[in-house]
């Protein structure tokens, strides 16, 4: 490791790789399902239980907000979500309103997870999660094509294995 010098102002570029465009559909469908469940609960809860009467205009308001969310947020997410793996580090950018960039050195990687949620499988997508010894430092790349994700897991596992140290 080189000796740290005094900080000079600098800027990070975005990670080079984008996730699959189908991720927008995945996020959109997930959001739509959640919105439907919420709306059903709101419309049914009022008449059935009588103790929580939700006025109709509130339901319409919630529906409008949910529709806007379903239309806008997946596209926004897709524009933000990026990732990059080099020989020495993993770099991800996630979020939409709050954008989070995470960088972890390859030598500190502890586990590499591959997960496919129910909705993700509909679109042939997968999520790769890279964890480090810090609970605050997991890097998640959602919405990768399945084959791409599997290849990435293999690549990361191999690289993490060849580097020494106990990663703490």
């Amino acid at each position: 490791m080189t000796v740290p010098s005094q900080p000079i102002p600098a800027a990070l570029r975005e990670p080079s790789q984008r996730v699959s465009p189908r991720a927008q559909l995945m996020w959109g469908l997930t959001a739509a399902l959640e919105a439907v469940v919420l709306l059903v609960v709101l419309t049914v809860a009022g008449p059935v239980t009588e103790w929580a009467p939700v006025p109709w205009w509130a339901v319409v308001l919630v529906a409008l907000v949910a529709a806007a969310y379903v239309c806008v947020v997946p596209k926004w997410r897709y524009r933000v979500h990026r990732w990059e793996v080099t020989g020495t580090a993993v770099y991800t950018q996630t979020g939409w309103w709050a954008r989070e960039r995470r960088i972890a050195p390859m030598s500190r990687i502890q586990t590499v997870d591959h997960a496919e949620g129910a909705v993700a499988r509909l679109f042939g997508l997968a999520t790769v999660t890279v964890t480090t010894a810090s609970a605050a430092g997991a890097l998640e790349i959602a919405g990768l094509e399945r084959d791409r994700a599997l290849a990435l897991v293999d690549e990361l596992t191999l690289m993490a294995e060849t580097l020494p140290g106990d990663a703490t």
């Binding site: 080189t2 740290p4 005094q6 900080p7 000079i8 102002p9 600098a10 990070l12 570029r13 960088i103």
Partner: peptide, 17 residues
């Protein structure tokens, strides 16, 4: 970014503008 780059130069270098 400057602080992170100065603290861990090898880690940040490939991603700097």
């Amino acid at each position: 970014v400057g602080v992170a780059a100065a603290a861990t130069p090898d880690l940040l270098a490939p991603f700097l503008v």
